[in-house]
Computed example of a mutant assay.
Amino acid sequence: MNITGNTIFIPGATSGIGLALARALRDKGNTVVVGGRRTELLDELKGEGFGTVRIDTADAADIERAAEDVLRRYPDLNVLVAMAGIMRAEDWTRPEDFLATAETVITTNVLGPIRLIAAFIGHLQAQPDPTIVTVSSGLAFTPLKVTPSYNASKAAIHMLSESIRLQYTKVRVVELVPPSVQTDLMPGQRDNERALPLDDFVAEVMALLESQPDAKEILVERVKFLREAVQRGDYDHVVTVLNATDPHANK
Protein backbone atom coordinates (compact mmCIF):
# COMPACT_ATOMS: atom_id res chain seq x y z
CA MET A 1 0.00 0.00 0.00
CA ASN A 2 1.29 3.42 -0.91
CA ILE A 3 0.99 5.71 2.11
CA THR A 4 0.63 9.04 0.32
CA GLY A 5 -1.60 10.53 -2.35
CA ASN A 6 -4.67 8.45 -1.49
CA THR A 7 -8.26 9.29 -0.66
CA ILE A 8 -9.09 7.14 2.36
CA PHE A 9 -12.31 6.37 4.22
CA ILE A 10 -11.96 5.16 7.81
CA PRO A 11 -15.26 4.39 9.55
CA GLY A 12 -14.84 4.05 13.29
CA ALA A 13 -12.08 6.65 13.44
CA THR A 14 -13.40 9.18 15.94
CA SER A 15 -11.21 7.73 18.71
CA GLY A 16 -8.54 5.17 19.51
CA ILE A 17 -6.50 3.42 16.84
CA GLY A 18 -8.76 4.67 14.07
CA LEU A 19 -8.29 8.33 14.90
CA ALA A 20 -4.55 8.03 15.49
CA LEU A 21 -4.13 6.23 12.17
CA ALA A 22 -6.31 8.81 10.41
CA ARG A 23 -4.11 11.63 11.68
CA ALA A 24 -0.92 9.81 10.68
CA LEU A 25 -2.24 9.15 7.18
CA ARG A 26 -3.42 12.73 6.80
CA ASP A 27 0.02 13.95 7.78
CA LYS A 28 1.49 11.82 4.98
CA GLY A 29 -0.44 13.79 2.37
CA ASN A 30 -3.61 11.74 2.05
CA THR A 31 -7.18 12.98 1.95
CA VAL A 32 -8.81 11.22 4.89
CA VAL A 33 -12.54 10.88 5.49
CA VAL A 34 -13.48 9.87 9.04
CA GLY A 35 -16.73 8.10 9.86
CA GLY A 36 -18.44 7.65 13.20
CA ARG A 37 -21.71 7.90 15.10
CA ARG A 38 -20.94 10.83 17.39
CA THR A 39 -21.67 14.06 15.53
CA GLU A 40 -19.94 16.24 18.13
CA LEU A 41 -16.66 14.41 17.54
CA LEU A 42 -17.12 14.56 13.79
CA ASP A 43 -17.60 18.33 14.04
CA GLU A 44 -14.33 18.62 15.94
CA LEU A 45 -12.49 16.51 13.38
CA LYS A 46 -13.87 18.57 10.53
CA GLY A 47 -12.04 21.48 12.15
CA GLU A 48 -8.80 19.46 11.86
CA GLY A 49 -9.20 19.21 8.10
CA PHE A 50 -10.80 15.77 7.85
CA GLY A 51 -13.74 14.92 5.70
CA THR A 52 -16.45 13.50 7.91
CA VAL A 53 -19.55 11.35 7.57
CA ARG A 54 -21.93 10.00 10.16
CA ILE A 55 -22.16 6.22 9.97
CA ASP A 56 -23.38 3.39 12.19
CA THR A 57 -21.52 0.29 11.01
CA ALA A 58 -23.96 -1.96 12.88
CA ASP A 59 -26.80 -0.73 10.64
CA ALA A 60 -26.88 -2.15 7.10
CA ALA A 61 -29.07 0.64 5.71
CA ASP A 62 -26.90 3.32 7.28
CA ILE A 63 -23.79 1.84 5.68
CA GLU A 64 -25.44 2.06 2.25
CA ARG A 65 -26.52 5.65 2.88
CA ALA A 66 -23.09 6.70 4.15
CA ALA A 67 -21.31 4.99 1.25
CA GLU A 68 -23.40 6.92 -1.26
CA ASP A 69 -22.58 10.14 0.57
CA VAL A 70 -18.83 9.41 0.71
CA LEU A 71 -18.58 8.43 -2.95
CA ARG A 72 -20.59 11.43 -4.09
CA ARG A 73 -18.30 13.83 -2.22
CA TYR A 74 -15.04 11.92 -2.72
CA PRO A 75 -15.15 10.20 -6.12
CA ASP A 76 -11.37 9.60 -6.04
CA LEU A 77 -11.62 7.38 -2.97
CA ASN A 78 -9.28 4.42 -3.41
CA VAL A 79 -8.69 3.09 0.13
CA LEU A 80 -11.20 1.68 2.60
CA VAL A 81 -10.04 0.98 6.16
CA ALA A 82 -12.70 -1.16 7.85
CA MET A 83 -11.72 -0.02 11.35
CA ALA A 84 -14.96 -0.03 13.36
CA GLY A 85 -15.19 -2.67 16.08
CA ILE A 86 -16.21 -3.32 19.68
CA MET A 87 -14.87 -5.60 22.41
CA ARG A 88 -17.00 -6.90 25.29
CA ALA A 89 -16.42 -9.32 28.16
CA GLU A 90 -18.80 -12.30 28.22
CA ASP A 91 -19.59 -15.12 30.63
CA TRP A 92 -20.50 -18.12 28.47
CA THR A 93 -21.69 -20.12 31.48
CA ARG A 94 -24.69 -17.78 31.63
CA PRO A 95 -26.65 -17.58 28.34
CA GLU A 96 -28.70 -14.69 29.68
CA ASP A 97 -25.42 -12.79 30.06
CA PHE A 98 -23.62 -13.52 26.80
CA LEU A 99 -26.13 -14.00 23.97
CA ALA A 100 -27.16 -10.39 23.35
CA THR A 101 -23.58 -9.20 23.76
CA ALA A 102 -22.27 -11.85 21.36
CA GLU A 103 -24.83 -10.91 18.73
CA THR A 104 -23.86 -7.23 19.00
CA VAL A 105 -20.14 -8.00 18.71
CA ILE A 106 -20.60 -10.22 15.65
CA THR A 107 -22.91 -7.71 13.97
CA THR A 108 -20.43 -4.88 14.44
CA ASN A 109 -17.14 -6.71 13.95
CA VAL A 110 -18.03 -9.17 11.19
CA LEU A 111 -21.14 -8.00 9.39
CA GLY A 112 -19.95 -4.39 9.59
CA PRO A 113 -16.76 -4.94 7.55
CA ILE A 114 -18.57 -7.30 5.14
CA ARG A 115 -21.24 -4.70 4.48
CA LEU A 116 -18.65 -1.95 4.10
CA ILE A 117 -16.71 -3.95 1.54
CA ALA A 118 -19.92 -4.74 -0.33
CA ALA A 119 -20.80 -1.05 -0.43
CA PHE A 120 -17.42 0.09 -1.77
CA ILE A 121 -15.94 -2.77 -3.80
CA GLY A 122 -17.61 -1.84 -7.08
CA HIS A 123 -16.14 1.64 -6.86
CA LEU A 124 -12.72 0.50 -5.65
CA GLN A 125 -12.24 -1.95 -8.52
CA ALA A 126 -12.34 0.97 -10.96
CA GLN A 127 -9.78 3.10 -9.07
CA PRO A 128 -6.00 3.29 -9.43
CA ASP A 129 -4.08 1.51 -6.65
CA PRO A 130 -7.19 0.43 -4.69
CA THR A 131 -6.73 -1.03 -1.22
CA ILE A 132 -8.93 -2.54 1.48
CA VAL A 133 -7.43 -2.55 4.97
CA THR A 134 -9.08 -5.00 7.34
CA VAL A 135 -8.46 -4.95 11.09
CA SER A 136 -8.18 -8.23 12.96
CA SER A 137 -6.30 -8.73 16.24
CA GLY A 138 -3.66 -10.83 17.93
CA LEU A 139 -6.66 -12.44 19.64
CA ALA A 140 -7.66 -13.93 16.29
CA PHE A 141 -4.74 -16.30 16.80
CA THR A 142 -4.52 -16.72 20.59
CA PRO A 143 -7.74 -16.39 22.64
CA LEU A 144 -8.44 -14.21 25.65
CA LYS A 145 -10.91 -16.23 27.72
CA VAL A 146 -13.20 -13.35 28.71
CA THR A 147 -13.90 -12.17 25.15
CA PRO A 148 -14.99 -15.25 23.15
CA SER A 149 -17.08 -13.43 20.55
CA TYR A 150 -14.44 -10.77 19.99
CA ASN A 151 -11.79 -13.46 19.47
CA ALA A 152 -14.07 -15.29 17.04
CA SER A 153 -14.98 -12.12 15.17
CA LYS A 154 -11.35 -11.24 14.60
CA ALA A 155 -10.52 -14.80 13.51
CA ALA A 156 -13.34 -14.41 10.98
CA ILE A 157 -11.84 -11.16 9.73
CA HIS A 158 -8.46 -12.83 9.32
CA MET A 159 -9.88 -15.66 7.22
CA LEU A 160 -12.11 -13.27 5.31
CA SER A 161 -9.01 -11.23 4.43
CA GLU A 162 -7.14 -14.33 3.32
CA SER A 163 -10.09 -15.45 1.19
CA ILE A 164 -11.06 -12.26 -0.61
CA ARG A 165 -7.40 -11.61 -1.36
CA LEU A 166 -7.57 -14.71 -3.55
CA GLN A 167 -10.54 -13.32 -5.46
CA TYR A 168 -9.54 -9.69 -5.97
CA THR A 169 -7.08 -9.26 -8.81
CA LYS A 170 -7.07 -5.46 -8.81
CA VAL A 171 -7.71 -4.59 -5.16
CA ARG A 172 -4.97 -5.03 -2.56
CA VAL A 173 -6.13 -6.51 0.78
CA VAL A 174 -3.98 -5.58 3.78
CA GLU A 175 -4.73 -7.01 7.22
CA LEU A 176 -3.75 -4.87 10.20
CA VAL A 177 -3.22 -7.10 13.26
CA PRO A 178 -3.05 -5.01 16.46
CA PRO A 179 -1.91 -6.28 19.86
CA SER A 180 -3.41 -4.81 23.01
CA VAL A 181 -3.05 -1.04 22.59
CA GLN A 182 -3.66 1.69 25.16
CA THR A 183 -7.13 2.80 24.07
CA ASP A 184 -10.64 2.73 25.53
CA LEU A 185 -11.62 -0.46 23.68
CA MET A 186 -12.03 -2.19 27.08
CA PRO A 187 -12.36 -0.66 30.56
CA GLY A 188 -8.92 0.00 32.02
CA GLN A 189 -7.07 -0.71 28.77
CA ARG A 190 -5.87 2.88 28.34
CA ASP A 191 -3.91 2.60 31.61
CA ASN A 192 -2.73 -0.97 31.13
CA GLU A 193 1.06 -0.92 31.28
CA ARG A 194 1.22 -4.20 29.35
CA ALA A 195 -0.61 -2.64 26.39
CA LEU A 196 1.36 -0.88 23.67
CA PRO A 197 1.18 2.95 23.83
CA LEU A 198 -1.06 4.21 21.04
CA ASP A 199 1.50 6.58 19.52
CA ASP A 200 4.12 3.82 19.45
CA PHE A 201 1.70 1.45 17.76
CA VAL A 202 0.73 3.88 15.01
CA ALA A 203 4.32 4.98 14.40
CA GLU A 204 5.34 1.34 13.92
CA VAL A 205 2.36 0.66 11.66
CA MET A 206 3.19 3.63 9.45
CA ALA A 207 6.84 2.57 9.24
CA LEU A 208 5.79 -0.95 8.21
CA LEU A 209 3.34 0.35 5.60
CA GLU A 210 6.07 2.52 4.13
CA SER A 211 8.85 -0.10 4.18
CA GLN A 212 6.65 -3.05 3.13
CA PRO A 213 4.27 -1.71 0.47
CA ASP A 214 3.37 -5.23 -0.68
CA ALA A 215 2.74 -6.66 2.80
CA LYS A 216 -0.37 -8.76 3.29
CA GLU A 217 -0.28 -8.44 7.08
CA ILE A 218 0.95 -5.54 9.18
CA LEU A 219 2.48 -7.05 12.30
CA VAL A 220 4.08 -4.83 14.91
CA GLU A 221 6.65 -6.65 17.03
CA ARG A 222 4.40 -6.80 20.10
CA VAL A 223 1.70 -8.82 18.33
CA LYS A 224 4.02 -11.55 17.06
CA PHE A 225 3.94 -13.28 20.45
CA LEU A 226 0.27 -14.05 19.76
CA ARG A 227 0.24 -14.21 15.97
CA GLU A 228 3.08 -16.70 15.61
CA ALA A 229 2.37 -19.00 18.57
CA VAL A 230 1.28 -21.94 16.41
CA GLN A 231 4.24 -21.55 14.05
CA ARG A 232 6.66 -21.47 16.98
CA GLY A 233 5.03 -24.49 18.61
CA ASP A 234 4.32 -22.77 21.93
CA TYR A 235 0.59 -22.06 21.53
CA ASP A 236 -0.48 -23.61 24.86
CA HIS A 237 2.18 -21.61 26.70
CA VAL A 238 1.12 -18.37 25.01
CA VAL A 239 -2.55 -18.99 25.89
CA THR A 240 -1.55 -19.54 29.52
CA VAL A 241 0.63 -16.44 29.68
CA LEU A 242 -1.97 -14.23 27.97
CA ASN A 243 -4.76 -15.27 30.30
CA ALA A 244 -2.61 -15.10 33.42
CA THR A 245 -1.37 -11.58 32.78
CA ASP A 246 -4.27 -9.80 31.12
CA PRO A 247 -6.11 -7.62 33.67
CA HIS A 248 -9.49 -8.69 32.24
CA ALA A 249 -8.75 -12.41 32.14
CA ASN A 250 -9.94 -13.30 35.64
CA LYS A 251 -12.93 -11.01 35.88
Rank of each mutant, 00 (worst) to 15 (best):
T7W: 15
D69I: 10
A20T: 15
Q182N: 10
I17M: 08
T169F: 14
T108C: 02
M186D: 12
A249S: 09
D236K: 03
Y150H: 04
L111D: 12
H123C: 00
A215M: 04
I157H: 09
T4I: 11
K224F: 00
T31W: 14
T107Q: 15
P178H: 06
P11H: 06
A22K: 06
T14A: 01
R190M: 07
Q125A: 09
P148W: 04
Y74D: 03
A100E: 15
A155R: 07
E175M: 02
F201M: 06
D234N: 13
F141P: 05
T108Q: 02
V238A: 02
F98W: 12
F120D: 08
L219R: 00
A156V: 12
V238L: 09
D191P: 04
Q212I: 02
V239A: 02
S149G: 08
I218F: 12
I63Q: 01
A140M: 01
T14V: 06
K170C: 05
L116I: 11
V81M: 13
E68H: 07
I17V: 11
G18L: 03
D236F: 02
P197Q: 01
G122K: 13
Q189R: 05
M83T: 03
L196H: 10
A13S: 09
D214C: 12
A89F: 15
V174S: 02
G51H: 13
E48C: 01
P179K: 05
G233H: 00
L242H: 00
L185T: 05
S137E: 04
L242E: 00
E162R: 10
W92V: 13
E64C: 13
S137N: 08
V202N: 09
R94T: 09
T52H: 05
Q167H: 08
Q167S: 02
E204S: 03
L80H: 07
L196I: 05
G5H: 13
D191K: 07
N30D: 09
I17N: 13
G49H: 04
E193L: 06
A215E: 08
